[in-house]
């Protein structure tokens, strides 16, 4: 009897030890990355989360988490909701514009342009990234203002002037300009890997180039599209320079609001942390969706 008991107890234990040791090796290998991840990502986020639970905390005060008032404030004040919505609108709109403009460009560079020109074109496209984002926004002011470059041109060709500076369209233009290179780079990387034999197969089955594009090229580059959109969306969500300089009087965004909480008049770090957590959550959600989506498409390979 007793021996039976002991064996039945031993078995799971050895199994457990076996399972543990099978975990040990990867754990050891992952440890350095884990330490980095912990130091640079997990701990800061936890700190922000802790701060977000202290209503109205300011620099120099003791962190003493006490409740979710900061979060309630975001939900209860319609004004903050409006800021959130505006940020989302700017980020989503920019993502869409970048996708629509970036896809043909990436497609051209990856599939049409001769190989020896590709790198040059890509560098040309990425060149704007080397200038400061602030200077780029100021350049757009010069272009878009009522008597600026754009309207001078429109007038010269007999078209009516457009007054878009200090309105949302200008923000979309500025942000799209800044983020388009990222989209193009990522889509290029994805399209360049496209198996052209699949396009031949599609043509062979009766697809004209247009049909082949929609039925093969686009689905095949979906992971790239998703990654590009995500990057542009996240970066767009964090941009406050373009909205502020180009968007006119009503251009408060999440990023600027957070900035103001940390460095502005009141220094409400608690509320700022709560706002940050909302963004972190939104971005994490987007990444989780991408991973899930990416998994499915990689299973297709």
């Amino acid at each position: 009897m007793s021996s039976q008991v002991s064996t039945s107890a031993d078995k799971p234990r050895t199994a457990l030890v076996g399972r543990l040791s099978s975990w040990l090796e990867p754990l050891a290998l992952l440890a350095p990355a884990g330490v980095w991840l912990g130091l640079l990502l997990v701990i800061p986020v936890l700190l922000i989360f802790q701060l977000s639970l202290v209503p109205g905390i300011r620099p120099g005060q003791v962190v003493n988490p006490s409740g979710i008032e900061n979060y309630l404030q975001i939900v209860q004040e319609p004004i903050y909701l409006r800021v959130v919505l505006r940020s989302l609108m700017f980020a989503l709109g920019t993502t869409l514009i970048c996708l629509v403009l970036g896809f043909p460009v990436a497609y051209l560079i990856a599939l049409v342009v001769p190989k020896q020109w590709r790198n040059l074109l890509l560098v040309g496209f990425v060149l704007p990234l080397w200038t400061s984002s602030l200077l780029r926004s100021y350049a757009w002011i010069t272009i878009l203002r009522p008597t600026g470059v754009l309207n001078t041109f429109l007038k010269a060709v007999g078209l009516p002037a457009i007054d878009i500076l200090n309105r949302p369209p200008a923000v979309f233009i500025g942000m799209s300009y800044s983020l388009l290179p990222y989209m193009v780079l990522i889509l290029y990387a994805s399209l360049e890997k496209l198996d052209r034999r699949l396009l031949e197969a599609a043509a062979d089955l009766g697809a004209n180039p247009f049909q082949a594009f929609w039925r093969v090229t686009v689905p095949q580059s979906l992971p790239g599209i998703a990654a590009g959109c995500l990057l542009v969306f996240i970066t767009g969500l964090g941009d406050f320079i373009d909205p502020e300089l180009l968007g006119g009087a009503s251009s408060m965004t999440m990023a600027r609001l957070i900035y103001n909480q940390f460095l502005g008049v009141t220094r409400n770090w608690g509320f700022g942390s709560a706002l940050s957590m909302v963004i972190i959550l939104a971005v994490s959600l987007a990444i989780a969706l991408l991973l899930k989506y990416g998994d499915r498409s990689s299973a297709n390979l």
């Binding site: 031949e200 043509a203 697809a207 004209n208 689905p219 095949q220 498409s297």
Partner: peptide, 28 residues
């Protein structure tokens, strides 16, 4: 152009559309 020719090809690499199921590949 290839898409108007009354021929179909079986490719060496198969060139199946990996984003479509077997049935959808055949139905393409």
């Amino acid at each position: 152009p290839p898409y108007r020719r009354p021929v179909n090809t079986v490719f060496q690499s198969y060139a199946l559309f990996n984003h479509l199921t077997v049935a959808e590949n055949v139905a393409f």
